[in-house]
């Protein structure tokens, strides 16, 4: 059974069509990327899932049940880390648990053992401004994971990082994911990131977004930090081609 299934989703915002007949599925334990040009409606797609927006057409199934009728299924990691500057890191991490009604002391006790795994050992009592960009992003990911929801939604999580930190974070995420196998939907416009991390990749067209291609990534993990296989190199080229062709940006 699919952890998540979207069928024939259509969405308009303020009269502008944003999504046009988008269908996709994500299996349990699968890492799926949604790749598309900037401003194509990728983030709107995630906003549908966290129910910040309502689709005009189509339906969303979560674990076989309609999204509106299912218990909360998604943990969301927004584009920028969205850490609260007035909360210490540990209190940022437990935010989701707090909203679920867990008492802060119990929530802190629950997340404390995870700090080493996320490379944040000793930074529990720091404020976000005292951490580097990569550390903040790990804290934001930790805040996402500890909510213990069936599906993780990552909205361009490394987009705001410098190139070196981004690579470091991608490697780190790949290793963590290999251990934990969170069901993950990653939204990105970075072809290399999508190929490195995903089991499957959906490519969206520019607005109004349709799915114009779906690729499975054949390579074995870990993929980062070593030479890509010829198939993966061809896949990257094909993805770039698919992304660039419909916009007429090739020249």
């Amino acid at each position: 059974m699919s952890a998540l299934e979207l069928s024939h989703i259509g969405l308009s915002l303020g009269g502008t069509p944003v999504l046009d007949d988008v269908s996709m599925h994500v299996a349990s334990g699968e890492f799926v990327s949604i790749l598309g040009p900037s401003g194509c409606g990728k983030s709107s797609l995630l906003r549908l899932l966290i129910r910040a927006l309502q689709p005009d057409r189509g339906e969303i199934l979560v674990g076989g049940a309609l999204l509106e009728e299912s218990p909360p299924a998604f943990a969301f990691m927004p584009q920028r880390d969205a850490l609260m500057p007035w909360r210490r890191i540990i209190d940022n991490v437990i935010l989701g648990l707090e909203v679920q009604g867990v008492r802060p002391a119990a929530a802190r006790a629950r997340v404390r053992p995870l700090f080493a795994t996320f490379g944040l050992d000793g930074f529990e009592q720091h404020y976000p401004a005292q951490l580097s960009g990569g550390m903040r992003q790990r804290a934001a990911l930790m805040r996402t994971i500890v909510q213990d929801r069936p599906v993780q939604l990552l909205d361009e999580p490394f987009g705001a990082l410098d190139a070196l930190t981004r690579t470091e974070m991608q490697r780190w995420l790949e290793r963590r994911w290999q251990h934990a196998r969170w069901t993950t939907v990653l939204v990105t416009h970075d072809v290399r990131e999508a190929v490195a991390l995903s089991d499957r990749i959906y490519v969206l067209s520019p607005r109004p977004a349709r799915i114009i291609a779906e690729f499975a990534v054949p390579d074995r993990r870990p993929r980062l930090g070593r030479t890509l296989s010829p198939e993966a190199v061809r896949l990257e080229a094909a993805l770039l081609d698919t992304l660039l062709t419909p916009t007429g940006d090739r020249s």
Binding site: R47, I50, A52, P72, A82, L95, G96, V99, Q147
Partner: peptide, 19 residues
């Protein structure tokens, strides 16, 4: 983004105000 995050966690309007 912080408000969207809280909403995704299931926080109410009052919860978003307080937090």
């Amino acid at each position: 983004e912080i408000e969207a995050l809280l909403a995704s966690m299931g926080a109410s309007r009052a919860g978003i105000f307080r937090r």
